[in-house]
Each structure stands twice: as C-alpha cells, then as structure tokens.
Computed example of a mutant assay.
Amino acid sequence: MSISTSFSRSNIIAQLQALLYSSVAAGVPAISASIRTSTQTLWSSTAGFSDLSNQKPINSKHIFGIGSITKLFIAVVILQLIEEDKLKLSDTLSSFLVQEVFHDIGNAEPATIGRLLSHSAGVESWEDDPKWIVEGRGKDLDPDRIWRKLDTLEYIRHPSSLTPGVFSYANTNFTFLGLVIEKITGKTAESEIRRRILAPLGMKDTYLEGFEEGVGKEKVPRRYHFATKDFIKAAGICPKFPEVEWNGTNLIDATGSNTSVEWVAGGMLSSPSDLMNFAIAIRNGNLLNPSSMKILQDWNPAGNAEIGHGLFRFKSPLGYGSWLGHNGSVLGFTGSLFWAEEGDCVVSVLANVGTMHAGEVPSSAAHVAINTEFLDLAKKLAGFVEGDKSSNT
C-alpha cells in the first residue's frame, strides 16, 4: 500500500482523534476506538465522558455493550461444533429443541442451522415486536429485571410474514442458536463462549451481562440513548430514566438497566482491545479450520451488504474498500468491529449511546466507523507498517 506524501503518522492520528471529538460534539457522550494489525496496536484513543453529570472523562479501560457483535461469538461456536461433527448446517431446529420452545413461532420448526446463521430462516425478530420494544427498551421496561433466555420468544408466537430463504435480520435466529449450543453441549452458551474463545484469547474484559460475573461496575460507563421523536413514539421513555441534554441532543440516561434481554443475540460487554484480539483470531484462522472459514464467508445478498454465516461483508460507501465484521446497537451502546478484506487492518469503535428505534441520529460508533474517513485513515496508518516491513526485506 502506497502512502501519499501529504500524510504522516502524526497527521493521520490527528485526523482520527478529530473524528472522535466531532462525534462527541454531535451528541455522543463518549467514544473509544482502536486500530490494529496482526502484530501491533497502531492507535487507540477515546473522547468524551463516561458520566455526563460530572463530566468524568472516558478512558481506555472502560468497556461497552457491543450489541450484535455478540453474534460473531455464537457463529464461531456453532462452526466449531460442526467441525466436531455434533451438528450440520442442514440440521433443523426441531432436531435439537423440544416443541415447547419454538411452538407457534412461524417458520421456526423447519429452520436449518445454516439459515439461522445467515438470517434467512424466515423467523421474525422479537426485537421488532411493538410490545417488546415498549417492555424491552421503553416506558414499560423494568431496569432491574434479568431476562430469562426464553422470555423474548413469547413476543413472536404467531405466523411469520417472512419467506424462508430470503434475508431478513432477526435476533431470534441467534437466540435459537444459543439454545442449540446448550442442548448439544449440556453447558450454558456463555460458558462455551468463555471456554472456546474468551479464555484461550485472554479476553478478560468480555462477558455476557446478566449471565456471568462482570469485571466491575466502575469499568462500565453510564449508558445513554438517543431520545428522538421516533424513539419516544415507538418505545416511550422508562420513568426511571432521567432525560439529559448533551451538545444540543436529547438523551435518556439508561444506567441501571442491563443487556440480559439480548443474551447471545447482543448482550455482551467488551473493550476495543479485546475485540481486536477476537477479530484477528477469526481472520487469521486461529479459531476455525479452513472449511469453516469458507462457510463463514459464503456470501449472499443482505440489503446493502452481503452475509456469510454470521459474518457481514460490505463495501465502504465512501470508497474505502471491502470490510468484514459486524455492527451492534442495544439500549445505551453502539459498536463496530471490522477488518479489511485486503491488507492487515482491524478497527473497533465503541460508544456509550444507543440508537435502536431512534431513527436518524447525529452520530454513533457505526457512523464514525463507516460514514466518515475513519476506514481510509485506518488503512493509511496500517500502510506505514507495511511500508516499514517492505523496507526491511
């Protein structure tokens, strides 16, 4: 990769930091980002505040909800179980789960493992159910509730309007996959993630909130959510959540809530550095064998992107190449984790503000990662490392 003479390391880093500051100025309370290659961290920084009430600065030790990036962990475990001949992509949900679990959920019984992984089973998402939105994120939310693993399925026990074989993103798919993991292994899905991924990779800042012991509340910033007209209309505001104005943006302070409702569809907390280790391990084939890597990257259309089996590929809308990974958004948090399809560059951006059901918002972790020059700058920074390597050969 050639680097323009108009760019220097310090210039690129200054521009990256400016993107973080711009996001905070637009209304994001705090943001944390990192860029890595296989061998080293190129840049890691933060901007904003972990607590707006006292403007306590965010720092690199804080962890964030990662939302649907959690699904990548489940995809890896499922593919490892396939490697162990404990299930096949063609196996149906009904081969593992009793009917009491999936009864009356449209298209669930014949859904295959492959279609669940690729969001093409035709199963509706509990996250889209209007009643769940109010009770899971809105005015009827009980912040102290620890949701049970089957609770969300009660919202979608009706015929599905979706067509099997056609992409339709649904949290339900991964709720089911988590239950399949538990049936096959006889262990909790969270313990299998820990045994197979977190422990081997030394990911000490990563856990499923509500189902595992955390790393200390002091490491989790306050969690905020955009209180747009769309959010208020769809969800309403939980009376226990104070409203906050930050840089001209209306937010709610959802601190005190938890991500247990998401479970393996999006309930994990982590740090940019931990996520980097995970992404590099996937990309380099350290967690999956070559046949599983082909399954993971068996691409099919998925809206403005492509999906394999649990992994997305998208072309940067700004022309910065193709990237593999996942976005995430839950109550109080947003995140992005991607690696360049060509070259050695991995990026992670996390923020303590949620965007779900909020419609158009001024910024978020995904906005910074995808809709700014962030990916271009990341590749340029990685290019210096490639240039250093080539100069030594």
Rank of each mutant, 00 (worst) to 15 (best):
I3S: 13
R9V: 09
N11R: 14
N11F: 10
I13K: 15
Q17W: 11
A18R: 15
A18E: 10
S23D: 03
S38P: 08
S38H: 13
G48C: 01
G48L: 06
G48F: 01
N54F: 08
K56W: 11
I74L: 13
V77Y: 01
E83M: 03
E83H: 01
S90E: 11
L93K: 01
S95W: 09
L97C: 08
L97P: 12
Q99S: 14
P110V: 09
I113F: 08
I113S: 02
I113N: 01
S118L: 07
S118V: 12
A121C: 05
W126F: 12
E127H: 15
K131R: 09
W132D: 03
I133T: 08
D142L: 06
R148H: 06
T152S: 03
Y155A: 05
I156T: 09
I156Y: 04
P159D: 06
L162S: 06
P164A: 04
V166R: 15
N171V: 05
N171S: 11
T172I: 06
T172D: 03
G178N: 03
L179Y: 02
L179G: 01
I184C: 01
G186Y: 02
K187H: 14
A189G: 11
A189E: 02
S191I: 11
E192W: 00
R194V: 13
I197N: 06
L198D: 00
A199P: 01
D205C: 10
T206I: 11
Y207A: 10
E212T: 12
E213R: 13
E218H: 13
R223G: 08
C238R: 00
V244F: 02
T249C: 04
G256D: 03
T259D: 09
W263T: 00
A265T: 12
D274F: 14
N277T: 13
A281L: 09
L287M: 10
L296Y: 03
D298V: 10
D298Q: 06
G303V: 09
G303K: 15
G319L: 07
Y320N: 12
V330Q: 08
W339Q: 07
E342L: 08
G343F: 07
D344E: 15
C345K: 03
C345N: 07
H357F: 14
H357Y: 14
G359F: 09
V361P: 04
S363C: 03
S363Q: 04
A369V: 06
K380L: 12
A382T: 03
A382M: 04
A382E: 02
G383Q: 01
F384L: 14
K389L: 10
S391I: 04
N392W: 14
T393E: 12
